[in-house]
Structure formats: structure tokens, C-alpha cells
């Protein structure tokens, strides 16, 4: 196992210009910068927001029209939904910017969560399994998720929306590192 010449990493991290959303030093990257998810993941999320909430909007508008029969009620529903969809749409961008992961010599770091922020660090030696998952929608966008499983159920270290090839190489890299740094439970 490699040594740590620099000690326990940048404890008080410098806010980094390359980080699109520096947040606070608390969630600063332990390396130079966070590696972002694939831009296609943002696109997928955008489309899902439009599709899912658009469907609800159509249903709600139809219900309003059918139940009240007044055009302004329908228009009100449409406006409210449009505002909500606009909010959800721009929120996708902000959530996307928070997502990021970083690899160091011995640990993997994943940052997530816009309102409830979370930074999880998993030592490679602790990884039991590295799973690559890809559902039909993700596959359509050429995306895959990488999930790190440790002996703890609370670890919950998942990196969604990676490029499928990048996910596979990340998995292989993590597995290799995990094998060389394996630690007993």
C-alpha cells in the first residue's frame, strides 16, 4: 500500500476555481476538483422532468376542464404546473452541479444532495462489490450507475449517470485498487 506523504489530505480545502459550485469548504473536493457526471445525465433528467410533470399537467388540466368546465380554471392549473416544471427544470442543473466524485490514492469520495448535502468517503479496501447498473432509460442515453457496496448498509455510495464506458473503466479501476488494498472486515 502506498504511503501518505502529505498527511490526511487538504483538511481545510481551498475553494477551487474549476469547481462549478464550490459550496463551502466543507464539501470541497479532496483532490483538485470533483469529476462531474456525464452531461447526458442532465439531459436525461431534464427530459424526465418535462415528460413526467408534463403528463401530470395534461391530466390535471383535463380534470380541471372536465370538473369545472371553466377555461380559467384550466389555465390556472396549466400556469401553476408550468411554473413548477420551470422550477424543477432549473433545479436539475443545480443538482447536477453538486454531484461529483473524486479518486485519491486510497479512498473514493462522492458528493451529492442540493438541500441535504452529503459527502461520503469509502476506502478502496472496504469495497465488497462495485456494481455497474443501467436501466433501459439510462441505456438509451448511454449511461450507467456505479454503486459501491461495503459491509455497511449506510454507506450508500452511488454515482449515477456516468458514461457507460467510463462507468466500466471506473468499476475496473476501483476493483483493482480494492484488491491491492484489501482489508479484513
Amino acid at each position: 500500500m502506498s504511503e501518505f506523504p502529505g498527511g490526511p489530505g487538504p483538511a481545510t480545502a481551498v475553494p477551487d476555481a474549476a469547481d462549478p459550485d464550490p459550496l463551502t469548504p466543507l464539501f470541497a473536493p479532496p483532490t483538485a476538483s470533483w469529476i462531474p457526471l456525464s452531461p447526458r445525465y442532465r439531459e436525461l433528467k431534464h427530459r424526465l422532468v418535462l415528460l413526467a410533470w408534463g403528463l401530470w399537467m395534461v391530466l390535471a388540466a383535463a380534470a380541471a376542464q372536465f370538473l369545472t368546465g371553466r377555461w380559467w380554471a384550466t389555465a390556472l392549473v396549466v400556469v401553476v404546473f408550468a411554473a413548477w416544471i420551470g422550477y424543477r427544470y432549473q433545479r436539475v442543473d443545480r443538482v447536477y452541479r453538486v454531484w461529483g466524485y473524486a479518486e485519491r490514492d486510497t479512498d473514493l469520495y462522492v458528493r451529492s444532495g442540493l438541500l441535504f448535502r452529503r459527502l461520503v468517503a469509502v476506502p478502496y479496501g472496504r469495497m465488497q462489490v462495485v456494481e455497474v447498473e443501467s436501466g433501459p432509460i439510462e441505456r438509451h442515453f448511454g449511461l450507467a450507475s456505479v454503486k459501491l457496496v461495503t459491509a455497511s448498509a449506510s454507506t450508500d455510495a452511488r454515482i449515477p449517470g456516468l458514461d457507460a464506458a467510463a462507468a466500466a473503466t471506473l468499476r475496473d479501476r476501483l476493483t483493482d485498487k480494492g484488491e491491492t488494498q484489501v482489508a479484513g472486515l
Binding site: R118, A121, S154
Partner: peptide, 25 residues
């Protein structure tokens, strides 16, 4: 097994955070 830092909106306003050390369930 792993380590996490968490922070919700209230704690963020107060400049506080939570540290979790994860062990087997």
C-alpha cells in the same frame, strides 16, 4: 466501513455539520 459528512439547510445556516461513521448494519 466508510465516512460521511452531512448537512441540511438548518445546520448550514448555523455553520454546523454532522459526521457519520458507517459500520455493518
Amino acid at each position: 466501513q466508510s465516512v460521511a459528512i452531512r448537512q441540511g439547510p438548518l445546520r448550514r445556516r448555523l455553520g454546523l455539520a454532522t459526521v457519520e461513521l458507517h459500520s455493518s448494519p
